[in-house]
Design a protein around this nucleic acid. Structure first.
Lengths: 242, 242
DNA sequence: AAGGTAGATTGATTTTTATCAAGGATGAAT
DNA sequence: ATTCATCCTTGATAAAAATCAATCTACCTT
Protein backbone atom coordinates (compact mmCIF):
# COMPACT_ATOMS: atom_id res chain seq x y z
CA UNK A 1 0.00 0.00 0.00
CA UNK A 2 1.39 3.33 -1.01
CA UNK A 3 2.51 5.80 1.60
CA UNK A 4 1.65 8.94 -0.30
CA UNK A 5 -1.33 9.94 1.80
CA UNK A 6 0.48 9.29 5.01
CA UNK A 7 3.46 11.29 3.88
CA UNK A 8 1.27 14.14 2.80
CA UNK A 9 -0.43 14.05 6.17
CA UNK A 10 -3.38 15.50 4.39
CA UNK A 11 -5.53 12.44 4.08
CA UNK A 12 -8.19 12.37 6.81
CA UNK A 13 -8.57 8.63 6.37
CA UNK A 14 -5.06 7.80 7.30
CA UNK A 15 -5.08 10.35 10.05
CA UNK A 16 -7.90 8.42 11.66
CA UNK A 17 -5.87 5.28 11.10
CA UNK A 18 -8.88 3.06 11.12
CA UNK A 19 -7.20 0.53 8.91
CA UNK A 20 -10.20 0.12 6.72
CA UNK A 21 -9.03 2.96 4.56
CA UNK A 22 -5.84 1.24 3.63
CA UNK A 23 -8.09 -1.01 1.62
CA UNK A 24 -10.24 1.58 -0.02
CA UNK A 25 -8.83 5.02 0.62
CA UNK A 26 -10.99 7.26 -1.53
CA UNK A 27 -8.58 10.14 -1.23
CA UNK A 28 -5.78 8.88 -3.38
CA UNK A 29 -5.75 5.96 -5.79
CA UNK A 30 -2.09 5.52 -5.06
CA UNK A 31 -2.80 4.37 -1.56
CA UNK A 32 -5.61 2.02 -2.33
CA UNK A 33 -5.22 -1.72 -2.33
CA UNK A 34 -5.39 -2.55 -6.03
CA UNK A 35 -7.71 -5.45 -5.28
CA UNK A 36 -10.42 -3.02 -4.24
CA UNK A 37 -9.90 -0.38 -6.87
CA UNK A 38 -13.11 -1.36 -8.62
CA UNK A 39 -15.24 -0.71 -5.53
CA UNK A 40 -14.52 2.96 -5.13
CA UNK A 41 -17.51 4.99 -6.28
CA UNK A 42 -17.86 8.59 -5.13
CA UNK A 43 -21.04 10.59 -4.61
CA UNK A 44 -21.81 14.20 -3.80
CA UNK A 45 -24.53 15.02 -1.29
CA UNK A 46 -25.95 18.53 -1.13
CA UNK A 47 -26.40 20.48 2.10
CA UNK A 48 -29.43 19.20 3.99
CA UNK A 49 -29.87 16.09 1.83
CA UNK A 50 -29.99 12.60 3.35
CA UNK A 51 -27.39 9.97 2.56
CA UNK A 52 -29.82 7.32 3.78
CA UNK A 53 -32.95 7.37 5.89
CA UNK A 54 -33.90 5.52 9.07
CA UNK A 55 -35.61 2.29 8.09
CA UNK A 56 -34.13 2.16 4.57
CA UNK A 57 -32.88 -1.23 3.44
CA UNK A 58 -29.13 -1.69 3.93
CA UNK A 59 -27.44 -1.00 0.60
CA UNK A 60 -23.83 -0.75 1.70
CA UNK A 61 -21.58 1.55 3.67
CA UNK A 62 -20.13 4.98 2.98
CA UNK A 63 -16.79 6.53 3.78
CA UNK A 64 -17.00 10.24 4.32
CA UNK A 65 -14.44 11.95 2.12
CA UNK A 66 -15.27 15.61 2.78
CA UNK A 67 -18.03 17.42 4.68
CA UNK A 68 -20.09 16.61 7.78
CA UNK A 69 -23.21 14.61 8.53
CA UNK A 70 -25.55 14.42 11.47
CA UNK A 71 -27.26 11.12 12.24
CA UNK A 72 -30.81 11.43 13.52
CA UNK A 73 -33.04 9.06 15.43
CA UNK A 74 -36.45 9.67 13.86
CA UNK A 75 -38.71 7.45 15.93
CA UNK A 76 -39.14 10.05 18.64
CA UNK A 77 -41.67 12.76 19.29
CA UNK A 78 -38.89 15.18 18.39
CA UNK A 79 -36.01 13.78 16.42
CA UNK A 80 -32.80 13.27 18.36
CA UNK A 81 -29.29 13.68 17.04
CA UNK A 82 -27.33 10.49 17.61
CA UNK A 83 -23.94 11.79 16.47
CA UNK A 84 -21.99 13.86 13.99
CA UNK A 85 -19.69 12.29 11.43
CA UNK A 86 -16.55 13.82 9.94
CA UNK A 87 -14.12 13.15 7.07
CA UNK A 88 -12.61 9.68 7.34
CA UNK A 89 -15.60 8.24 9.20
CA UNK A 90 -17.52 5.18 8.04
CA UNK A 91 -21.30 5.57 7.86
CA UNK A 92 -23.96 2.88 7.79
CA UNK A 93 -22.03 0.04 9.35
CA UNK A 94 -24.48 -0.39 12.23
CA UNK A 95 -27.12 -1.38 9.68
CA UNK A 96 -25.09 -4.45 8.83
CA UNK A 97 -26.58 -6.77 11.41
CA UNK A 98 -30.27 -6.08 10.83
CA UNK A 99 -30.53 -5.03 7.21
CA UNK A 100 -31.90 -1.53 7.84
CA UNK A 101 -30.24 1.77 8.63
CA UNK A 102 -31.28 2.69 12.17
CA UNK A 103 -30.78 6.43 11.70
CA UNK A 104 -31.07 9.09 9.02
CA UNK A 105 -27.76 10.58 7.90
CA UNK A 106 -28.19 14.19 6.78
CA UNK A 107 -25.48 16.39 5.26
CA UNK A 108 -24.67 19.58 7.18
CA UNK A 109 -22.87 21.01 4.15
CA UNK A 110 -22.07 19.83 0.65
CA UNK A 111 -20.30 16.54 1.23
CA UNK A 112 -18.50 13.83 -0.69
CA UNK A 113 -18.74 10.18 0.17
CA UNK A 114 -17.28 6.99 -1.14
CA UNK A 115 -19.94 4.32 -1.60
CA UNK A 116 -19.28 0.62 -1.11
CA UNK A 117 -22.20 -1.54 -2.13
CA UNK A 118 -23.07 -4.83 -0.48
CA UNK A 119 -21.36 -7.14 -2.97
CA UNK A 120 -18.16 -5.11 -2.60
CA UNK A 121 -18.54 -5.10 1.14
CA UNK A 122 -18.86 -8.89 1.15
CA UNK A 123 -15.50 -9.12 -0.54
CA UNK A 124 -13.88 -6.86 2.02
CA UNK A 125 -15.56 -8.37 5.04
CA UNK A 126 -12.92 -10.98 5.89
CA UNK A 127 -10.26 -8.29 6.20
CA UNK A 128 -9.39 -7.42 9.75
CA UNK A 129 -9.39 -3.73 8.88
CA UNK A 130 -13.18 -3.82 8.84
CA UNK A 131 -13.36 -5.23 12.34
CA UNK A 132 -10.72 -2.81 13.56
CA UNK A 133 -12.77 0.09 12.19
CA UNK A 134 -15.98 -1.03 13.89
CA UNK A 135 -14.16 -1.84 17.09
CA UNK A 136 -12.67 1.64 17.10
CA UNK A 137 -16.04 3.20 16.49
CA UNK A 138 -17.58 1.17 19.29
CA UNK A 139 -14.96 2.41 21.68
CA UNK A 140 -15.46 6.01 20.65
CA UNK A 141 -19.24 5.81 21.02
CA UNK A 142 -18.98 4.14 24.42
CA UNK A 143 -16.64 6.78 25.74
CA UNK A 144 -18.81 9.60 24.40
CA UNK A 145 -21.83 7.94 25.94
CA UNK A 146 -20.28 7.92 29.41
CA UNK A 147 -19.11 11.51 29.09
CA UNK A 148 -22.42 12.83 27.87
CA UNK A 149 -24.57 11.25 30.52
CA UNK A 150 -22.35 11.67 33.54
CA UNK A 151 -21.01 15.18 33.05
CA UNK A 152 -22.72 18.52 33.63
CA UNK A 153 -23.55 21.10 30.99
CA UNK A 154 -20.14 22.79 30.94
CA UNK A 155 -18.26 19.50 30.77
CA UNK A 156 -20.48 18.25 27.97
CA UNK A 157 -19.83 21.36 25.90
CA UNK A 158 -16.07 21.17 26.47
CA UNK A 159 -16.03 17.49 25.62
CA UNK A 160 -17.99 18.26 22.48
CA UNK A 161 -15.57 20.96 21.41
CA UNK A 162 -12.62 18.61 21.84
CA UNK A 163 -14.46 15.89 19.97
CA UNK A 164 -15.13 18.14 16.99
CA UNK A 165 -11.59 19.47 16.94
CA UNK A 166 -10.02 16.02 17.11
CA UNK A 167 -12.47 14.63 14.56
CA UNK A 168 -11.53 17.40 12.17
CA UNK A 169 -7.87 16.53 12.59
CA UNK A 170 -6.63 19.31 14.83
CA UNK A 171 -3.89 18.75 17.34
CA UNK A 172 -4.91 19.94 20.79
CA UNK A 173 -1.36 20.89 21.61
CA UNK A 174 -1.66 23.89 19.33
CA UNK A 175 -4.06 26.80 19.32
CA UNK A 176 -7.10 25.85 17.29
CA UNK A 177 -9.40 27.94 15.17
CA UNK A 178 -12.28 26.14 13.49
CA UNK A 179 -15.72 26.62 12.05
CA UNK A 180 -18.44 24.46 13.59
CA UNK A 181 -20.44 22.74 10.86
CA UNK A 182 -23.59 22.54 13.02
CA UNK A 183 -25.98 25.02 14.67
CA UNK A 184 -26.27 25.64 18.39
CA UNK A 185 -29.63 23.90 18.26
CA UNK A 186 -28.00 20.76 16.86
CA UNK A 187 -25.24 20.91 19.45
CA UNK A 188 -27.80 21.29 22.23
CA UNK A 189 -29.90 18.43 20.93
CA UNK A 190 -26.86 16.18 20.68
CA UNK A 191 -25.69 17.04 24.19
CA UNK A 192 -29.12 16.63 25.77
CA UNK A 193 -29.29 20.33 26.68
CA UNK A 194 -31.24 23.34 25.42
CA UNK A 195 -29.77 26.05 23.16
CA UNK A 196 -29.84 28.65 25.90
CA UNK A 197 -27.66 26.50 28.12
CA UNK A 198 -25.12 25.85 25.36
CA UNK A 199 -25.02 29.55 24.59
CA UNK A 200 -24.49 30.48 28.22
CA UNK A 201 -21.72 27.93 28.72
CA UNK A 202 -19.87 29.17 25.63
CA UNK A 203 -20.30 32.71 26.84
CA UNK A 204 -18.89 31.87 30.26
CA UNK A 205 -15.89 30.05 28.78
CA UNK A 206 -15.30 33.10 26.63
CA UNK A 207 -15.48 35.45 29.60
CA UNK A 208 -12.94 33.29 31.38
CA UNK A 209 -10.62 33.60 28.40
CA UNK A 210 -10.54 29.91 27.54
CA UNK A 211 -12.14 30.25 24.11
CA UNK A 212 -13.54 32.78 21.71
CA UNK A 213 -16.86 32.09 20.00
CA UNK A 214 -18.33 34.24 17.27
CA UNK A 215 -21.27 32.39 15.82
CA UNK A 216 -19.91 29.18 14.40
CA UNK A 217 -16.30 30.29 14.53
CA UNK A 218 -14.50 28.88 17.52
CA UNK A 219 -11.02 29.38 18.94
CA UNK A 220 -9.52 27.24 21.68
CA UNK A 221 -7.16 29.49 23.61
CA UNK A 222 -6.25 27.17 26.48
CA UNK A 223 -6.88 23.48 25.84
CA UNK A 224 -4.96 22.47 28.96
CA UNK A 225 -7.25 24.48 31.21
CA UNK A 226 -10.34 23.22 29.39
CA UNK A 227 -9.14 19.64 29.70
CA UNK A 228 -8.79 19.99 33.44
CA UNK A 229 -12.48 20.77 33.79
CA UNK A 230 -13.46 17.39 32.39
CA UNK A 231 -14.45 14.46 34.51
CA UNK A 232 -11.64 12.23 33.41
CA UNK A 233 -7.90 11.98 33.09
CA UNK A 234 -7.41 11.09 29.45
CA UNK A 235 -5.26 7.98 29.14
CA UNK A 236 -3.44 7.92 25.82
CA UNK A 237 -4.79 4.47 24.94
CA UNK A 238 -8.30 5.66 25.72
CA UNK A 239 -8.62 9.09 24.27
CA UNK A 240 -5.80 10.10 21.93
CA UNK A 241 -5.32 13.83 21.98
CA UNK A 242 -3.83 14.39 18.58
CA UNK B 1 -25.17 -26.26 13.22
CA UNK B 2 -27.35 -28.15 15.62
CA UNK B 3 -30.67 -26.74 16.62
CA UNK B 4 -30.75 -28.11 20.13
CA UNK B 5 -30.17 -24.82 21.91
CA UNK B 6 -32.65 -23.00 19.77
CA UNK B 7 -35.24 -25.70 20.36
CA UNK B 8 -34.64 -25.64 24.06
CA UNK B 9 -35.04 -21.89 24.03
CA UNK B 10 -32.83 -21.92 27.06
CA UNK B 11 -29.57 -20.84 25.50
CA UNK B 12 -28.94 -17.12 26.08
CA UNK B 13 -26.52 -17.04 23.18
CA UNK B 14 -28.99 -18.04 20.56
CA UNK B 15 -31.65 -15.90 22.12
CA UNK B 16 -29.44 -12.90 21.49
CA UNK B 17 -28.96 -14.18 17.96
CA UNK B 18 -25.66 -12.45 17.57
CA UNK B 19 -24.44 -15.01 15.11
CA UNK B 20 -21.06 -15.26 16.71
CA UNK B 21 -22.35 -17.92 19.04
CA UNK B 22 -23.22 -20.26 16.24
CA UNK B 23 -19.49 -20.61 15.89
CA UNK B 24 -18.58 -21.04 19.50
CA UNK B 25 -21.69 -21.51 21.62
CA UNK B 26 -20.28 -22.36 25.02
CA UNK B 27 -23.64 -23.56 26.24
CA UNK B 28 -23.93 -26.76 24.31
CA UNK B 29 -21.27 -28.64 22.40
CA UNK B 30 -23.96 -29.93 20.10
CA UNK B 31 -24.53 -26.49 18.69
CA UNK B 32 -20.94 -25.48 18.21
CA UNK B 33 -19.26 -25.40 14.87
CA UNK B 34 -16.92 -28.39 15.07
CA UNK B 35 -14.13 -26.32 13.54
CA UNK B 36 -13.99 -24.15 16.65
CA UNK B 37 -14.47 -26.85 19.25
CA UNK B 38 -10.86 -26.55 20.34
CA UNK B 39 -11.15 -22.88 21.20
CA UNK B 40 -13.76 -23.15 23.89
CA UNK B 41 -12.20 -22.69 27.30
CA UNK B 42 -14.39 -21.79 30.25
CA UNK B 43 -13.47 -19.83 33.34
CA UNK B 44 -15.22 -19.00 36.58
CA UNK B 45 -14.99 -15.49 38.02
CA UNK B 46 -15.92 -14.87 41.65
CA UNK B 47 -18.21 -12.06 42.77
CA UNK B 48 -16.34 -8.76 42.70
CA UNK B 49 -13.35 -10.11 40.78
CA UNK B 50 -12.15 -8.51 37.54
CA UNK B 51 -12.20 -10.36 34.23
CA UNK B 52 -9.72 -7.82 32.89
CA UNK B 53 -8.58 -4.38 33.97
CA UNK B 54 -8.49 -1.06 32.14
CA UNK B 55 -5.12 -0.74 30.45
CA UNK B 56 -4.37 -4.48 30.41
CA UNK B 57 -2.92 -5.85 27.21
CA UNK B 58 -5.51 -7.38 24.91
CA UNK B 59 -5.45 -11.13 25.42
CA UNK B 60 -8.62 -12.14 23.64
CA UNK B 61 -12.37 -11.87 24.06
CA UNK B 62 -14.84 -13.48 26.43
CA UNK B 63 -18.38 -14.70 25.94
CA UNK B 64 -20.44 -14.40 29.07
CA UNK B 65 -22.05 -17.74 29.80
CA UNK B 66 -23.73 -17.03 33.13
CA UNK B 67 -23.68 -14.11 35.55
CA UNK B 68 -23.33 -10.34 35.16
CA UNK B 69 -20.48 -7.88 34.80
CA UNK B 70 -20.16 -4.15 35.10
CA UNK B 71 -17.62 -2.34 32.96
CA UNK B 72 -15.93 0.61 34.64
CA UNK B 73 -14.05 3.58 33.29
CA UNK B 74 -11.25 4.01 35.80
CA UNK B 75 -9.51 7.13 34.55
CA UNK B 76 -11.90 9.45 36.35
CA UNK B 77 -11.87 11.13 39.74
CA UNK B 78 -14.67 8.71 40.63
CA UNK B 79 -14.96 5.64 38.49
CA UNK B 80 -17.86 5.61 36.06
CA UNK B 81 -19.89 2.57 35.01
CA UNK B 82 -19.86 2.26 31.24
CA UNK B 83 -22.34 -0.58 30.96
CA UNK B 84 -23.58 -3.88 32.34
CA UNK B 85 -23.11 -7.14 30.47
CA UNK B 86 -25.37 -10.17 30.61
CA UNK B 87 -25.31 -13.83 29.52
CA UNK B 88 -24.69 -14.15 25.80
CA UNK B 89 -22.75 -10.87 25.59
CA UNK B 90 -19.24 -10.60 24.19
CA UNK B 91 -16.70 -8.77 26.39
CA UNK B 92 -13.42 -7.22 25.42
CA UNK B 93 -14.00 -6.70 21.72
CA UNK B 94 -13.50 -2.94 21.89
CA UNK B 95 -9.88 -3.62 22.90
CA UNK B 96 -9.28 -5.18 19.52
CA UNK B 97 -8.27 -2.01 17.71
CA UNK B 98 -5.78 -0.63 20.21
CA UNK B 99 -4.39 -3.61 22.02
CA UNK B 100 -5.58 -2.60 25.50
CA UNK B 101 -8.87 -3.08 27.30
CA UNK B 102 -10.33 0.40 27.80
CA UNK B 103 -12.43 -0.57 30.83
CA UNK B 104 -12.31 -2.87 33.81
CA UNK B 105 -14.86 -5.69 33.73
CA UNK B 106 -15.91 -6.68 37.24
CA UNK B 107 -18.24 -9.58 38.14
CA UNK B 108 -21.42 -8.63 40.02
CA UNK B 109 -21.95 -12.25 41.05
CA UNK B 110 -20.17 -15.52 40.47
CA UNK B 111 -19.96 -15.74 36.69
CA UNK B 112 -18.86 -18.11 33.98
CA UNK B 113 -17.18 -16.98 30.80
CA UNK B 114 -15.88 -18.62 27.68
CA UNK B 115 -12.40 -17.39 26.83
CA UNK B 116 -11.17 -17.04 23.25
CA UNK B 117 -7.48 -16.19 23.07
CA UNK B 118 -5.95 -14.08 20.32
CA UNK B 119 -4.73 -16.94 18.11
CA UNK B 120 -8.21 -18.48 18.21
CA UNK B 121 -9.76 -15.11 17.55
CA UNK B 122 -7.55 -14.65 14.50
CA UNK B 123 -8.97 -17.87 13.07
CA UNK B 124 -12.51 -16.72 13.63
CA UNK B 125 -12.03 -13.17 12.45
CA UNK B 126 -12.91 -13.67 8.80
CA UNK B 127 -16.34 -15.02 9.73
CA UNK B 128 -19.11 -12.51 9.24
CA UNK B 129 -20.64 -13.54 12.55
CA UNK B 130 -17.92 -11.56 14.32
CA UNK B 131 -18.74 -8.39 12.43
CA UNK B 132 -22.46 -8.92 12.92
CA UNK B 133 -21.90 -9.22 16.66
CA UNK B 134 -19.89 -6.01 16.89
CA UNK B 135 -22.26 -4.19 14.59
CA UNK B 136 -25.16 -5.24 16.79
CA UNK B 137 -23.32 -4.11 19.89
CA UNK B 138 -22.53 -0.75 18.29
CA UNK B 139 -26.19 -0.20 17.51
CA UNK B 140 -27.22 -1.10 21.03
CA UNK B 141 -24.68 1.23 22.60
CA UNK B 142 -25.61 4.11 20.30
CA UNK B 143 -29.29 3.78 21.09
CA UNK B 144 -28.62 3.56 24.82
CA UNK B 145 -26.39 6.59 24.54
CA UNK B 146 -29.13 8.72 23.00
CA UNK B 147 -31.70 7.54 25.52
CA UNK B 148 -29.50 8.15 28.51
CA UNK B 149 -28.45 11.66 27.64
CA UNK B 150 -31.70 13.00 26.22
CA UNK B 151 -34.24 11.58 28.64
CA UNK B 152 -35.13 12.73 32.14
CA UNK B 153 -34.59 10.74 35.33
CA UNK B 154 -37.83 8.77 35.14
CA UNK B 155 -37.33 7.87 31.49
CA UNK B 156 -33.76 6.79 32.15
CA UNK B 157 -34.84 4.47 34.93
CA UNK B 158 -37.64 2.96 32.82
CA UNK B 159 -35.29 2.50 29.89
CA UNK B 160 -32.81 0.83 32.19
CA UNK B 161 -35.41 -1.57 33.57
CA UNK B 162 -36.42 -2.59 30.05
CA UNK B 163 -32.80 -2.98 29.06
CA UNK B 164 -32.07 -5.31 31.98
CA UNK B 165 -35.23 -7.33 31.41
CA UNK B 166 -34.57 -7.75 27.69
CA UNK B 167 -30.89 -8.50 28.26
CA UNK B 168 -31.83 -11.25 30.71
CA UNK B 169 -34.13 -12.77 28.11
CA UNK B 170 -37.54 -11.74 29.36
CA UNK B 171 -40.39 -11.03 26.98
CA UNK B 172 -42.00 -7.69 27.70
CA UNK B 173 -45.37 -8.98 26.60
CA UNK B 174 -45.62 -10.97 29.79
CA UNK B 175 -45.48 -9.93 33.43
CA UNK B 176 -41.87 -9.93 34.54
CA UNK B 177 -40.34 -10.69 37.90
CA UNK B 178 -36.57 -10.41 38.15
CA UNK B 179 -33.71 -9.83 40.53
CA UNK B 180 -31.44 -6.91 39.68
CA UNK B 181 -27.80 -8.00 39.81
CA UNK B 182 -26.58 -4.48 40.69
CA UNK B 183 -27.00 -2.03 43.56
CA UNK B 184 -28.95 1.22 43.41
CA UNK B 185 -25.62 3.03 43.57
CA UNK B 186 -24.43 1.23 40.44
CA UNK B 187 -27.70 1.93 38.65
CA UNK B 188 -27.47 5.61 39.55
CA UNK B 189 -23.86 5.84 38.44
CA UNK B 190 -24.66 4.18 35.12
CA UNK B 191 -27.66 6.46 34.51
CA UNK B 192 -25.81 9.64 35.44
CA UNK B 193 -28.08 10.24 38.45
CA UNK B 194 -27.69 10.00 42.23
CA UNK B 195 -29.04 7.11 44.31
CA UNK B 196 -31.71 9.25 45.93
CA UNK B 197 -33.19 10.13 42.55
CA UNK B 198 -33.26 6.50 41.40
CA UNK B 199 -34.90 5.51 44.66
CA UNK B 200 -37.54 8.21 44.36
CA UNK B 201 -38.37 7.34 40.75
CA UNK B 202 -38.79 3.66 41.60
CA UNK B 203 -40.96 4.63 44.54
CA UNK B 204 -43.18 6.81 42.37
CA UNK B 205 -43.56 4.11 39.72
CA UNK B 206 -44.53 1.74 42.50
CA UNK B 207 -47.11 4.16 43.91
CA UNK B 208 -48.60 4.46 40.45
CA UNK B 209 -48.94 0.69 40.28
CA UNK B 210 -46.61 0.21 37.31
CA UNK B 211 -44.00 -1.85 39.15
CA UNK B 212 -43.18 -3.33 42.50
CA UNK B 213 -39.69 -2.94 43.91
CA UNK B 214 -38.45 -4.63 47.07
CA UNK B 215 -34.72 -4.16 47.27
CA UNK B 216 -33.28 -5.82 44.19
CA UNK B 217 -36.46 -7.72 43.35
CA UNK B 218 -38.43 -6.02 40.64
CA UNK B 219 -41.80 -6.74 39.05
CA UNK B 220 -43.05 -5.06 35.90
CA UNK B 221 -46.82 -4.86 36.20
CA UNK B 222 -47.63 -2.75 33.15
CA UNK B 223 -44.94 -2.66 30.48
CA UNK B 224 -47.27 -0.97 27.98
CA UNK B 225 -47.83 1.97 30.28
CA UNK B 226 -44.14 2.20 31.12
CA UNK B 227 -43.23 2.10 27.43
CA UNK B 228 -45.50 5.06 26.71
CA UNK B 229 -43.50 7.23 29.07
CA UNK B 230 -40.35 6.84 27.02
CA UNK B 231 -39.16 9.38 24.53
CA UNK B 232 -39.39 7.15 21.53
CA UNK B 233 -41.73 4.92 19.59
CA UNK B 234 -39.81 1.66 19.42
CA UNK B 235 -39.50 0.51 15.82
CA UNK B 236 -39.10 -3.25 15.64
CA UNK B 237 -35.91 -3.00 13.57
CA UNK B 238 -34.50 -0.58 16.09
CA UNK B 239 -35.40 -1.94 19.48
CA UNK B 240 -36.73 -5.50 19.50
CA UNK B 241 -39.06 -6.02 22.43
CA UNK B 242 -38.72 -9.74 22.97
C1' DA C 1 -30.61 -14.59 67.70
C1' DA C 2 -27.98 -10.16 68.22
C1' DG C 3 -25.28 -6.73 66.42
C1' DG C 4 -23.08 -4.28 62.87
C1' DT C 5 -22.59 -2.43 58.30
C1' DA C 6 -23.57 -1.19 53.86
C1' DG C 7 -27.53 -0.30 51.17
C1' DA C 8 -31.90 1.97 50.55
C1' DT C 9 -35.48 5.28 51.55
C1' DT C 10 -37.45 9.76 52.83
C1' DG C 11 -37.59 14.73 53.77
C1' DA C 12 -35.74 19.62 53.53
C1' DT C 13 -32.91 22.68 50.99
C1' DT C 14 -29.74 24.23 47.34
C1' DT C 15 -27.99 24.07 42.80
C1' DT C 16 -28.45 23.28 38.09
C1' DT C 17 -30.88 23.37 34.02
C1' DA C 18 -35.25 24.20 31.46
C1' DT C 19 -38.73 27.27 30.25
C1' DC C 20 -40.61 31.58 28.97
C1' DA C 21 -39.89 36.02 26.97
C1' DA C 22 -37.54 39.62 24.57
C1' DG C 23 -33.89 41.55 21.75
C1' DG C 24 -29.95 41.38 18.71
C1' DA C 25 -27.04 39.43 15.12
C1' DT C 26 -26.42 36.99 10.86
C1' DG C 27 -27.02 35.49 6.36
C1' DA C 28 -29.66 34.50 2.13
C1' DA C 29 -32.71 36.38 -1.36
C1' DT C 30 -34.39 40.12 -3.55
C1' DA D 1 -28.33 47.82 0.26
C1' DT D 2 -32.79 46.07 2.37
C1' DT D 3 -35.79 42.74 4.10
C1' DC D 4 -37.02 38.65 6.18
C1' DA D 5 -36.31 34.69 8.61
C1' DT D 6 -33.56 32.08 11.31
C1' DC D 7 -30.18 31.72 14.62
C1' DC D 8 -28.07 33.29 18.70
C1' DT D 9 -27.85 35.70 23.08
C1' DT D 10 -29.51 37.45 27.49
C1' DG D 11 -32.51 37.91 31.50
C1' DA D 12 -36.25 36.39 34.77
C1' DT D 13 -38.68 32.59 36.56
C1' DA D 14 -39.99 27.64 37.09
C1' DA D 15 -38.92 22.87 37.30
C1' DA D 16 -35.83 19.09 37.89
C1' DA D 17 -32.27 16.91 40.09
C1' DA D 18 -28.39 17.18 43.47
C1' DT D 19 -27.03 17.75 48.02
C1' DC D 20 -27.38 17.36 52.88
C1' DA D 21 -29.22 14.97 56.73
C1' DA D 22 -31.72 11.51 59.10
C1' DT D 23 -33.68 7.12 59.48
C1' DC D 24 -34.81 2.58 58.08
C1' DT D 25 -33.85 -2.11 56.21
C1' DA D 26 -31.65 -6.24 54.70
C1' DC D 27 -28.04 -9.03 54.93
C1' DC D 28 -23.76 -10.79 56.86
C1' DT D 29 -20.95 -12.12 60.76
C1' DT D 30 -20.49 -13.75 65.04
Amino acid sequence: MSQRCKQLGSCPFHRKSNGLVDLICPFSASCRNAEFEQYVETRTIANGEPLFRAGDKFKGIYILQAGTFKQILESCAESQIVDFRYPGDVLGISAFCRGRYPYTAQALEQSHVCYINTPSLEVMLPHREIIAAISQRLRHVQLASVMLRQQNAEQRVIHFIFDVALSLGFNLKHKIRLRLPMSRKDIANYLGLVVETVSRVLQRLQTEGLITAHGRTLELLDSQQLMRRLLFKPEPWLFPLE
